[in-house]
Nucleic acid binder design. Sequence first.
RNA 1: GGCACUUUAGCUCAGUCGGUAGAGCAAUGGAUUGAAAAUCCAUGUGUCCCCAGUUCGAUUCUGGGAGGUGCCA
Length: 326
Amino acid sequence: MVSPNLNFKCILILGATASGKTALAHNLADKLNAQNKPCELVNLDAFQIYKELNIGTAKPTHEEILKYNYHGVNICELNENLDANTFARLSWEFCASIAQKNKIPICVGGSGLYLRAFLHGLDSLPPRDENIRTQIKEVANAHGWPYCHEWLAKVDPKRACELHPNDKTRIERALEIFLLTGKPQSEERSKENMLKEQDTLFPCYVIHCKQEPLILKERICLRVEQIFAQGWTQEVEQLFVKYGESLNSFHAMQAIGYKQILSSLFHTKTSQIPQGDLVDKISTLTWQYAKKQLTWCAKEKVDFTILNNNEENIDDLLKLVICWKP
RNA sequence: GGCACUUUAGCUCAGUCGGUAGAGCAAUGGAUUGAAAAUCCAUGUGUCCCCAGUUCGAUUCUGGGAGGUGCCA
């Protein structure tokens, strides 16, 4: 494995969905460019990486992608997926290549684990293995996840202690690591607790784009209505026409809204008009997601917080960023 | 107007053969080491519609009233 080039410094804008990260990034990039501090943008959003998920992921427009030299957008086919480690490595490469051009990378994103992997790195554990996972799932289907948890307790008691017997995602992963390496995950980790890690692998000026909860909730409802008005349903319909039933098995369809719209296409005859129920459901799911994002954000060391897109804040931020010497 | 059904958590509903009640969803908080917009965990005092009766005790049974739904006029 080639060791990554981490010889760069970057600006990171994090925050919940619909908090205004993208607009802030564009604003900041415009201002820095005007001050002869050229910059390029790097997407750190786990679903804007997909080529055909445009409307529902609130992806920057084609014009914006060109204008701001976006990296990390439209880099995956819809039936592919990108694990957190690969995502982090790609993002590092984007940042390093921008820095080589004497430009500043401005990274924008809010996907918890992916952000964490980018900032702090993951241990060198083996990537997921579909064959092993199939074997584990067979056991789980036959005996249930608590049984697999007991199995894990025999091979990696420390990790088993950390996990709830129903936590299938992590039990599966821990068993996978043991079956692939013959060693317990808890012994292979270099960090006792990843979340206590505060140092980033490279100098990073972290900006939290924050909204008061009530305002954020309103913005989320508004955004969901807007993206339906932009033709979200039609986007999903076109994907279904192109990929058929197999669309359901694509990991990309885990994105909030897409799977709900997809299933509604089979249950309503008038799919052209989004039902109020569907809009409400997706707004709720997005709000729940936003709260989880904020739990991740709260763990990071933040250099600057912008509340409710306050323009004065942004001017202060600009001054600080310009004289930032890590 | 008559008949039937119905009224319990923010919502949809269980349930208590009479001893003041619990699921799902929502809400709130937390976790998070390669599918993470995923996944998992924790948190439930609510005039059990109102009034009266029976009873040691009524959300539960009886009577009356009010709201809702459906059918018939």
